[in-house]
């Protein structure tokens, strides 16, 4: 097991290096620099922009810049944002808690909805409940988050005036009021992200449970006279959820990127909105760092999924 883990970790290194080279080259090929705005401002003499470019090393060849970035990164120096001139790691850490809070709660919501609905639907396939659940799941699938987000804003913020649609990370105050304010502003973004995920999870859970529920050992369990509840929870679900767990782990990076759009709509100061504003401002160090973090997440969650799989299912061995 530990040898397997070591091998996997060794394979991760070249793939992450490869990802970083591709990212860096694409960013270097893209037009523009962070001081674009200065070029169109007649108040700023062109040599100020030239000085800034030279100061931040933007005039060096791509290869030199990449090696400089890589060596700094290996020493734990993420560089600093060209736009806000703040260290990138500080910038990301500042925004990470918000993203984790929103994404974490939406994942919990997704599982809370998907598990019971999926399992119940699978135990009664093609019943009315199953039909309704499937229809809703397909609708949830089909509606992108930027659309449902706007619809929710229109209904709950503008028409009903119940919920705020501008998310504020640092609400001042304390006690229950503070908690309530946080919940109130998180309801819409969490619902948008969570229900979108729940739609796909429901389908997976249902399929997985349906696969297992027809197996002979389930019939045996029923024949033993076990209560239906016990059969489903102890015998069916435990085995059926193995692929679902892997799926959730594999979906995590996707969820992060899905959060980007939602963060922009609700003005959530998370990593996604940081990425968007950095891309718009051509702020290379920040784009590099955030995309790199996302890439690492994908690689890491792939590994986690593989490990979880083996842990849940003893039939799988690592070699």
């Amino acid at each position: 097991m530990s040898r397997y883990l070591l091998r996997r970790l060794m394979i991760m290194i070249p793939s992450i290096l490869g990802i970083s080279i591709v990212l860096f080259t694409i960013l270097a090929l893209a037009p523009g620099d962070p001081f674009e705005e200065l070029a169109t401002n007649p108040n700023v003499p062109p040599d100020v922009r030239a000085n800034l470019r030279a100061k931040f090393g933007l005039d060096d060849p791509v290869a030199v810049r990449y090696v400089r970035w890589l060596t700094a990164m290996l020493q734990g120096d993420w560089g600093f944002s060209f736009v806000s001139r703040i260290d990138v790691d500080a910038l990301i850490l500042q925004r990470l808690p918000t993203t984790m809070l929103v994404i974490g709660s939406s994942q919990i919501l997704a599982l809370l909805v998907a598990l019971p609905v999926g399992i119940y639907a699978a135990t009664r396939p093609y019943s009315v409940f199953d039909q309704i659940a499937s229809t809703l799941a397909f609708i949830g699938f089909a509606l992108p988050t930027f659309f449902t987000g706007l619809v929710l804003i229109l209904i709950f913020s503008i028409t009903l005036d119940w919920l705020p649609f501008v998310y504020r990370a640092d609400i001042s105050g304390s006690g229950w009021r503070w908690v309530w304010e946080h919940i109130r502003q998180a309801i819409m973004p969490v619902a948008v992200l969570g229900l979108f995920q729940a739609a796909s999870y429901t389908r997976y859970v249902r399929a997985a449970v349906l696969d297992v529920i027809r197996l002979d050992y389930v019939t045996t369990a029923r024949a033993k006279g076990l209560a239906e509840r016990v059969v489903v929870i102890k015998h069916v679900v435990r085995n059926a959820l193995i692929p679902v767990v892997t799926l959730v782990a594999l979906q995590m990076p996707v969820v992060f990127s899905g959060g980007i759009v939602t963060e922009q709509i609700f003005r959530i100061p998370g990593i996604g909105s940081l990425l968007i504003s950095s891309i718009l401002a051509n702020d290379t160090p920040v784009i590099m760092a955030v995309t790199f973090v996302f890439a690492c997440l994908v690689v890491a969650f792939n590994l986690i999924a593989d490990l979880l799989y083996g842990w849940l299912d003893p039939r799988i061995t690592y070699r």
Binding site: Q94, R168, A169, P269, S273, L274, S277
Partner: peptide, 9 residues
């Protein structure tokens, strides 16, 4: 407090 791109207080 200040969070770049997000909030100035």
């Amino acid at each position: 407090s200040f969070a770049p791109g997000d909030m100035v207080k």
